[in-house]
């Protein structure tokens, strides 16, 4: 049976539920491409710079150093953390950056791919996912640093650290989901890329990344989806238990829904973007 494809206006809308089959099928067909694009970006990074991905270690050091200094100088008042602060901040920041760099590069992935998007037909999801893979890879490098910190502070992580990748999944779904939609919008309006980088900076301070969840329930922190998604993996890694399992559960479900919705939107609008990029 040869594959027969039909192109007609709003084909995807007429498909109904079958669209999911098509989406998963395409993703599977092109899984090698995701890997290739990831490898491509990675090796291109090293060709142009001396340290390549090692640069991603610079940001945590600077941020944590700054926070420690502000705390020391009495400008900021960070509450006591259950584990040594540098370790706490490093883990938090590393997880946060999966989201931040993933979203940033994901939102720019379609625009950045240039000719590929307008001249070649392939599921463009792979561009977003490949840029996400890049930020996960950077996390793995930072994870090496986390292990060093564990040794330095003589803090032994919980054995439940093996579940860490699973607990991290909701955050990945959320990141890819948001990236998919933002990359589309960015294709049409370039402002989105700038807005994303701006918002990410402030969002980091509004999320308990470099400081523990405050005892007082601030509205903004309470409804911050990212807070449980970042704290749960951190708590699991260090203490072996999640403090607010229900909240985490809800956040996970919401993230998954956001991802599925976003993917569908992306798939529907995918062909509109090359016309306008």
């Amino acid at each position: 049976m040869e594959d027969i494809r039909v192109y007609e206006p709003h084909k995807q809308l007429k498909q109904g539920i079958k669209i999911w089959k098509e989406m998963f099928g395409e993703l599977y067909d092109f899984h090698e491409l995701i890997w290739r694009l990831f490898a491509r970006d990675l090796s291109a990074k090293y060709k142009q710079s001396l340290l390549g991905n090692a640069w991603c270690l610079a940001m945590p050091f600077v941020a944590i150093g700054t926070f420690m200094y502000l705390n020391h100088a009495g400008i900021l008042h960070i509450q006591h953390t259950s584990i040594p602060y540098p370790l706490y901040a490093l883990i938090g920041l590393s997880i946060w950056q999966i989201f931040a760099t993933g979203l940033n590069s994901g939102a720019n992935s379609l625009v950045g791919a240039g000719d590929m998007v307008t001249k070649i037909n392939f599921p463009r999801e792979v561009l977003v996912i490949a840029s996400m893979a890049q930020s996960v890879f950077e996390f793995l490098i930072k994870f090496g640093l986390i292990i060093v910190f564990f040794c330095v502070f003589k803090y032994f992580p919980s054995w439940k650290i093996i579940f860490f990748p699973i607990v991290l999944l909701p955050l990945l779904f959320l990141t890819v989901g948001l990236s998919l939609v933002l990359s589309l919008l960015n294709g049409v309006m370039r402002d989105i890329g700038n807005i994303v980088s701006l918002l990410l900076m402030f969002l980091m301070f509004l999320t308990p990344v470099l400081y523990p969840v405050p005892a007082k329930n601030f509205l903004l922190l309470k409804f911050n989806l990212l807070s449980p998604l970042i704290n749960a993996p951190r708590e699991l890694m260090t203490e072996g238990s999640i403090h607010q399992p229900v909240l985490f559960g809800v956040a996970s479900v919401v993230s998954l829904l956001i991802f599925l919705m976003a993917w569908r939107i992306f798939h529907l609008a995918e062909t509109k973007v090359p016309e306008r990029v």
Binding site: E2, D3, I4, R5, V6, Y7, E8, P9, H10, K11, A113, G114, D115, M116, T118, K119, I120, N121, T271, P274, E275
Partner: peptide
Amino acid sequence: LNGIFMPDKGRITVKGKMGALIQVGAG
């Protein structure tokens, strides 16, 4: 024909694997 754009009217039916050289070296 390549499926990069969808037509606004009408329908295109394509059977088999499509190779396109719309711009060489894109990518």
